[in-house]
Design a protein around this nucleic acid. Structure first.
Lengths: 226, 226
DNA sequence: CCAAAAGTGTTCTTTGTACACCCATGC
DNA sequence: GCATGGGTGTACAAAGAACACTTTTGG
């Protein structure tokens, strides 16, 4: 039995949440879009494989990544029985763009405008989106998608994209600040408004300490379809 | 590469939360305690394998079960590289006892008084305990551990065991009832108190409909170590 | 009648939500 | 000086937590 690792890679460009896909190099379905994946090597752990695969594609290391689940339907790969362990990763898209272009010719796709994917990769993506919503409602995970310096309105756009809904900006900023995870900077971002919005940075120490304690971030979480 | 499925099976006897373990039949570590597991067969899915293994051990079908995650450290099984997909199951221990005794000679162990386990099974159990706390804080999953008819004080003992803490019984019963997932029965359980506590049954329809919407069940969830 | 668990009522605190209104700035 | 987002203040509503007190019944 073959064991593969597939990576669902999320990015955020300031407006939209996107997924990084590659065109499959092997038959069958050569040329069709696919998640980035690879086979587990004899001496590596699953985490190591996932990080290796992510680095191959993006050049990035130290990225936020977590195991999602295993997919093992007997017929999921029509050629040979292959178990896939899916990981999802959150990357700062601007970090990635410094790196750009490689042998895989990956492309970013808006999560709502995805092409057809091979095998059961669509199912994996759907589960990853659900998982991301779930996790982000409870933990401050979405900061991983932003550059190290960001404004609260930028953060709000990200949350609104994830939950496909609008939040009250006044209550949103208060709620974010009440977590005390953010450190206010002196400079403002003037690109998006005349008044300008202050930049913030994550308090990394508090972020790590409070990672598990970020419940109730999303208003009316019981109305979300998780 | 070998692919195994291991099951972490939780039960509740009315006072304590327990895990069902077996003595390993194969070398190495023959005779040592272990989670119930087995190898994934060529034609079956992971879910099918997990259900097959659970049925082999307990005789039960239709049990609550979910995939936890994959464990793939290269050296986790010293003999041969084996990937394990861990599932956790919640069973009504009394249902199980009707079935009793089989070739595996399983035994229930209190979650806090576990013997040494083979390989990385202790790690799997620790993660399963954490996962169960996490999930139960958000979803009405613990009903799966109770018989179809139960009292609110019984439910409270279960929650207190899971979270290793005490809840205010007055607020607890109100909170449970406010979910409207329970249907009051005419009879009382007189075994545990003089006044007696009313039995309740789960409203299966509402349970399924609201399974995702049970957030904020545990007071102060941010103080829990998840 | 007393002990002991079940359960109701009430109060206070905290958190969430809605929205009026002021602020800073580029044009 | 006015349009545009950024942000504070405030008021009301909902949920959570603490706890006094009543109920039921076996001994």
């Amino acid at each position: 039995m073959l064991v593969a690792v597939d990576c669902i890679i999320f990015g955020f460009d300031g407006n939209d949440i996107k997924l990084l896909l590659v065109q499959r190099g092997l038959k069958p379905e050569k040329g069709k879009w696919s998640l980035m994946g690879g086979f587990l090597q004899p001496a590596e752990s699953l985490e190591q494989a996932a990080n290796r695969i992510l680095k191959q594609l993006t050049g990035l290391e130290g990225v936020y990544m977590e195991q999602m689940r295993a997919f093992g339907e007997p017929e999921r790969d029509p050629v040979e029985r292959t178990l896939s362990i899916a990981y999802f990763a959150l990357i700062d898209i601007h970090q990635y763009e410094k790196q750009l272009s490689n042998e895989y010719h990956p492309e970013w796709f808006h999560v709502k405008k995805m092409p057809d994917l091979i095998f059961d990769h669509k199912k994996m993506v759907d589960i990853a989106k659900r998982q991301l919503r779930y996790k982000a409602a409870l933990h401050p995970i979405l900061f991983e998608l932003l550059p190290s310096r960001f404004t609260i309105p930028q953060l709000q756009i990200l949350y609104e994209g994830i939950y496909d809904t609008a939040f009250d900006n006044r209550n949103f900023s208060r709620k974010v600040l009440s977590t005390e995870l953010l450190i206010k900077q002196k400079e403002k971002d003037k690109a998006n408004s005349k008044k300008g919005a202050f930049y913030y940075k994550l308090d990394k120490r508090k972020y790590k300490a409070n990672f598990q304690a970020f419940l109730n971030f999303i208003p009316n979480p019981d109305k979300l379809l998780l």
